[in-house]
Simulated scan of single mutants.
Amino acid sequence: MYQIIEHWSDCDRAIYYGDGIFTTMRVTSGKVSLLEYHLTRLDRDAQKLGLPPVNEEIVKAITDRAGQLNNGVLKVTLSCGDGGRGYARPDTLTPVVFFSQGQIPLNYSRWEKEGVSLGVSQIRLAKQPLLAGIKHLNRLEQVLIKQHMPKEFDDVLVLDTDNHIVECSSANVFWYKNETWYTPELTNSGVSGVMRAHIVNFFRASAIPHAEVSVSVKKVLDCEAMFICNALMGLVPVKRLHAEQRQYQKEIKRVCELRAKVLETL
């Protein structure tokens, strides 16, 4: 059973070791977009890390706080709770839930209209299948990616240590080539985003050709279109990809048309 807290304890394992998970929700008119996807991921990630499943009390707290927020960002963090010193968890867990809120980044609306420029990060993601897909609290790789991201780019493609595309700094990525939409498989690293899951389900329900693949940057240079996505930004077209010391222009119209269809299903 989780305890909802208003302040973090100094001994919480979320602070000591990043021992927990989180999800970031977009709230519009008091409702959480993709709520069932968020709850499914929280349950899945909690199970993988040995945390209790999400209960009705947490679901009610989410909907109540979304109603109070009305519009903005609601972040839900699940932690193992207090644990004292040492990596080993105590025999009896006291898991907690912490809520925080904020505003949708202002640049997202501009990105939707104009598209973004992507570079390629020099920081590589480690391969750890046990943590792949989980939105856990250990985000130091993403901190380094942001620190080293050139200012002329809106975001960057991030590769693993085998130089395969995984995601962007805080978003998943799709590209269109040979009449098929592709997205990286996430079996060894990366975050399995809720918008990514919804788009894959949309492709499946609409019989749109799609595939999850493990490829290098060279394989996407000649793609026709590309977009990045997460629960807050939705689908954002990529207008330029900077890679291999060149710029590659991408088609925005195809992504905008796809976005309109996906939004109808939310």
Rank of each mutant, 00 (worst) to 15 (best):
E112R: 15
K113P: 04
K113Y: 05
E114W: 04
V116I: 15
S117F: 06
G119C: 10
S121K: 07
I123D: 01
A126T: 10
K127Y: 00
Q128I: 14
P129N: 02
L130V: 14
G133H: 09
H136Q: 03
L137V: 12
L137S: 13
L137T: 11
N138F: 06
R139A: 07
L140F: 14
Q142I: 07
H148K: 13
M149N: 08
M149C: 13
K151D: 15
E152W: 03
F153D: 08
F153R: 07
D155T: 05
V156W: 04
V156P: 03
V158I: 09
L159A: 05
T161W: 00
T161V: 12
D162W: 01
N163E: 13
N163I: 00
H164C: 14
H164D: 11
I165F: 01
V166Q: 13
S170Y: 11
V173F: 02
V173C: 01
E179C: 02
P184V: 12
P184L: 11
P184T: 13
L186G: 03
T187H: 12
S189W: 01
G190I: 08
G190D: 03
V191D: 00
S192T: 07
G193M: 01
V194A: 03
V194Q: 04
V194E: 02
M195Y: 11
R196T: 04
A197Y: 01
F203P: 00
F203L: 01
A205P: 00
I208N: 08
H210L: 03
A211N: 12
E212H: 09
S214L: 08
S214D: 03
V217W: 10
V217K: 12
K218V: 11
K218H: 13
K218A: 15
K219D: 15
L221Q: 11
L221E: 10
D222K: 13
A225E: 06
F227S: 09
I228E: 06
A231Y: 02
L232A: 04
M233F: 03
M233D: 04
M233V: 04
V236Y: 02
V238L: 11
V238K: 09
R240K: 12
L241H: 10
A243C: 11
E244W: 12
Q245F: 14
Q245K: 15
Q247S: 14
Q247G: 02
